[in-house]
Amino acid sequence: MTLVQGALDWLGDPANWRGLSGIQQRLVEHLAITGAVILVAALIALPLGILVGHTRRGRGTVVALTSGVRSIPTLGLLTILALNLGIGLTAPVLALIVLAIPPLLAGAYAGIESVSVDAVDASRGIGMTEWQLVRAVEVPLALPVIVGGLRSATLQVVATATLAAYVADAGLGRFLFSGLKQRQYSEMLGGAILVATLALVLETALALMQRVLTTVPPDTGRP
C-alpha cells in the first residue's frame, strides 16, 4: 500500500497545490475544459435531439450516426485533429465535443419521445402551438431523461479530458502523463484520484438534480 500512501502524501503536500502547474490550477483548467465542452456539445445536441424527438423524424439516421460516433476512439480523433489544427486546446476540445454529443443527443430525443402521447394530444387540443408544446410540455416532462444524458456525457468528458494534456499544457492529465513517464507513480495515482473524485462530485450533483426533477412535477406553465 506504499503506492496509495505515496499518492495521499502527494495530495497532502500543500506545495503541490500551488503555482501555475499546481493541483489547484489544473483542477480549474480541467473543470473549465469539461464545462466548455459540455456547453458547446449541449448547444448542438439538445436542440437537434428535441427536434428529432418532437417530429419523430430522422430517428433512425440519428441513432445510426450517434452509435457510429460513439465508437470513434477519442485519442485517435484527437491526434488527427491536432495534426491538422496544431497543438493546444482546440483539438482536444473538439474531440471531447464529439465524445459528448451522442449521450446528450440520445437523452434529448429519448426524453421527448417518452412524453405520453395523451399529454401531447391534450396540449394540441387546447390550442397550443408546436413551439409552446415543446417549450411548456415536452421539454419539462423530458427533463429527467435529458439530465440523465447530461450526466452520462459529463462523466465521460471529465474522465477523458485528461487527454487534453496529450497536446496542451492543461488539465489534470498533466499529472498522469508526467507521472507515468518519470515513474513518479504517487503523482500519477494522485492525479487519477483527483480525476475520479471530480467525476464523483459532478456525478452526485447531477444525480441529485435529476432526482429533484423527477420527484417534483415541474411547472408546466400556464394553460
Binding site: 491526434t79 491536432a82 496544431g86 497543438i87 496529450y166 497536446v167
Partner: peptide, 20 residues
C-alpha cells in the same frame, strides 16, 4: 514548456512548423 506526448513524432513536427 508545453507537453506533446508523441516523442518528437508528427504532432511535434506540426507544432514546430506552426510556430506554436
Amino acid at each position: 514548456f508545453t507537453p506533446i506526448e508523441d516523442s518528437g513524432g508528427p504532432l511535434t513536427v506540426k507544432a514546430l512548423k506552426d510556430g506554436t
